[in-house]
């Protein structure tokens, strides 16, 4: 379980900085696919591991994107709100021990909502921090919306592609 998460950590960092960062999606689109790692950490992950691993993930991406601290801050924030979001979505499904956050165990609807909320939180933190203010709020909101949508597509695609072998 731990090993699988470490592998996912490394692969997602590499995928983000070597593939995604080099694809020019055009316009405002700047997907942050590595959030997938935070989404898929097991439910029973202790809080401090959740925070530290997300921070490390963000920092790792930062090192290769020339945005030191930016992704680290956004990823840590995402990790911080994750338990709250899980509690919020609990009414939909009970988290029995051994369940994994994902489409296979909890259904498409649950995962879609879960991913949508956390990705939006992450991208909002990231893009507002990048502009460091609310001066260009509509442009920033547009940036957040469109990049979140693309990230969400990537995350759901990865669910369908990789969840079967797990």
């Amino acid at each position: 379980m731990i090993g699988r998460n470490i592998i996912r950590f490394i692969l997602l960092t590499a995928f983000q900085v070597l593939v995604i960062n080099h694809i020019r999606f055009g316009g405002y689109v700047y997907p942050m696919v590595y959030v997938y790692f935070i989404l898929l950490l097991p439910f029973e992950t202790p809080g401090w591991i959740l925070l530290l691993s997300s921070f490390a993930m963000g920092l790792g991406v930062d090192f290769f994107s020339g945005t030191l601290g930016l992704n680290a801050a956004a990823a840590t924030f995402t990790a911080f709100v994750r338990p709250g979001v899980l509690k919020l979505l609990k009414s939909e499904k009970e988290y029995e021990p051994g369940l994994q956050p994902g489409i296979r165990d909890l259904g498409f609807r649950w995962f879609f909502l879960y991913a949508l909320i956390l990705i939006t939180v992450h991208h909002s933190a990231l893009f507002f921090l990048e502009v460091f203010g609310f001066s260009e709020i509509f442009q920033t909101l547009y940036r957040i919306g469109i990049s979140s949508a693309v990230t969400l597509v990537f995350v759901i695609l990865m669910q369908f592609i990789f969840s079967k072998q797990d």
Partner: peptide
Amino acid sequence: HFFFLFVLLELFSFFLVVRN
């Protein structure tokens, strides 16, 4: 500890953002 660790990590990130 969850909250304090969060604050600590965020402060460190902000420090990096501002310095960098």
